[in-house]
């Protein structure tokens, strides 16, 4: 078989207990329309389940949507779990309600970008295309 060019694969997940997935669904749909392969996992997922899904789906990007306020504990856990599983080159970004003062800590934990309310799909797609691993 000859080699084909392939879309960037993105896992969209909602860690923790908040059940508001409107934003995550809009993003999943929007990224699909931008040509990404989006795996949507649904609400109330444990960080362990998100990590396992990212490994099984061999995604290039994990996008974490969080509105519950638990971002400072949950998001670094996902990054650490991915790295521990050997997925060192998976880009991890976040979206949702995350206060400005918490962002440096998330950046230090390996979250390359935080997209708050008002972020456009185009802006997010551009970031993912620029930073997702090539293969």
């Amino acid at each position: 078989m000859s080699e084909r060019s392939v879309p960037i694969r993105v896992l969209i997940a909602k860690p923790g207990l908040d059940g508001h997935d409107r934003g995550a669904k809009v993003l999943a749909r929007g990224l699909r329309d931008e040509g990404f392969e989006v795996i949507y996992t649904g609400i109330r997922r444990s960080t362990e389940a998100i990590i396992a899904a990212a490994i099984e789906e061999d995604v290039d990007v994990v996008g974490l949507s969080i509105l519950s306020g638990a971002h400072a504990t949950l998001l670094p856990k996902v990054v650490a779990g991915l790295r521990a599983a050997g997925a060192n080159d998976v880009l991890v970004v976040a979206g949702g309600i995350i206060p400005e003062e918490d962002r440096p800590g998330l950046a230090a934990a390996g979250i390359t970008a935080v997209f708050g309310p008002g972020s456009t799909i185009g802006e997010i797609a551009t970031h993912l295309r620029a930073h997702a691993r090539r293969r």
Binding site: P7, A28, R29, L31, R32, D33, E34, G35, F36, E37, V38, I39, Y40, T41, G42, R45, S46, E48, A49, I51, A52, A53
Partner: peptide, 16 residues
């Protein structure tokens, strides 16, 4: 667009 929305994991109770 070549994009896809793959939503079957929503129905699966993940057992990591």
């Amino acid at each position: 667009t070549g994009g896809a929305l793959l939503g079957d994991r929503v129905r699966i109770d993940e057992r990591p």
